[in-house]
C-alpha cells in the first residue's frame, strides 16, 4: 500500500510529467509562462484544484451515476476553480491580474478532468490525493521551468515571487539585451518545442 502510494505520487513528477511526457494542458503552459512567478502561481492554482477535485470525485465515486459523471465532475471542478479565483483575488492580487482569464480556464484543463475520469473515479481517496498532488507538483515545476527559460532569455530576469526579480542579467552584463522573442507568444511554442526535444533525449523510464 505504502509503496503503491509512493508510486502514484512520483509518477507525476517524471514518468507522466504533464506538459512534457503527456503533452497535456498546453494552453496555460504556452500562455502564462512569461515569468517563473506566473508559471508557479498557475501551477499552484491547478494543483489546488486537482487535489481537491480528485479527493471529492474519489469520495463520491460510488454515489455518482455513470451517465451524468462528466457533469458531476465539471460541477466539482468548477466549484474549486471559482474558490481558487476568489482566493487569488483576495490574497495574491498581482498574480491574479497577471494570470487573468487563465484561472477560470483551469475548468477546461484536460489534466484536471483527465485525472478525475481516469484515476480518481476508480481509486480510494488517499490514492487520489497522492495522484493529484504528484501530477500537480509535476505540472507546477514544468511551468516554472518553462517560465525560467522564457523569462531568463526573453527578459534577462528571474522572478520567483512577489514581482521583484531575484536575478537580473543587467547586473552581470551592464549592456545585456534580452532576446525579446521568447516573451512573445510564438516564442512560447519555440521554447516548449525545444524543451520537449531535450526531454525526449532522456528516456522516460
Amino acid at each position: 500500500m505504502a509503496q503503491s502510494l509512493a508510486k502514484e505520487f512520483t509518477k507525476g513528477l517524471w514518468a507522466e510529467l504533464p506538459p512534457f511526457r503527456l503533452v497535456l494542458g498546453l494552453c496555460p503552459v504556452l500562455a502564462v509562462t512569461k515569468t517563473v512567478e506566473n508559471g508557479l502561481g498557475m501551477g499552484i492554482a491547478t494543483t489546488f484544484v486537482l487535489v481537491f477535485s480528485n479527493l471529492l470525485v474519489s469520495m463520491l465515486r460510488n454515489v455518482i451515476p455513470t451517465k451524468v459523471r462528466i457533469a458531476c465532475y465539471i460541477v466539482i471542478i468548477a466549484t474549486f476553480v471559482t474558490i481558487v479565483e476568489f482566493l487569488a483575488q483576495a490574497f495574491a492580487y498581482p498574480l491574479f491580474l497577471a494570470l487573468g482569464i487563465f484561472i477560470p480556464l483551469i475548468v477546461v484543463n484536460c489534466i484536471v478532468l483527465g485525472r478525475a475520469e481516469a484515476f480518481a473515479s476508480k481509486n480510494t481517496p488517499v490514492m487520489a490525493i497522492a495522484d493529484g498532488l504528484g501530477i500537480g507538483i509535476g505540472f507546477t515545476l514544468s511551468l516554472g521551468a518553462i517560465g525560467l527559460v522564457r523569462e531568463f532569455l526573453g527578459a534577462g530576469t528571474i522572478t520567483i515571487w512577489g514581482g521583484t526579480p531575484v536575478f537580473d542579467m543587467t547586473s552581470v552584463f551592464a549592456n545585456f539585451q534580452p532576446f525579446g522573442f521568447m516573451i512573445e507568444a510564438p516564442g512560447a511554442f519555440v521554447a516548449l518545442g525545444l524543451m520537449l526535444a531535450v526531454m525526449n533525449l532522456i528516456p522516460s523510464k
Partner: peptide, 19 residues
Amino acid sequence: MVVVLTVLTAVSGGLLAAI
C-alpha cells in the same frame, strides 16, 4: 441522477456564496 446533481450543485452554490 437528478438527486445527485441537485445536491451537488446546491452544495457547490452554497459553498461559493459563503466564500
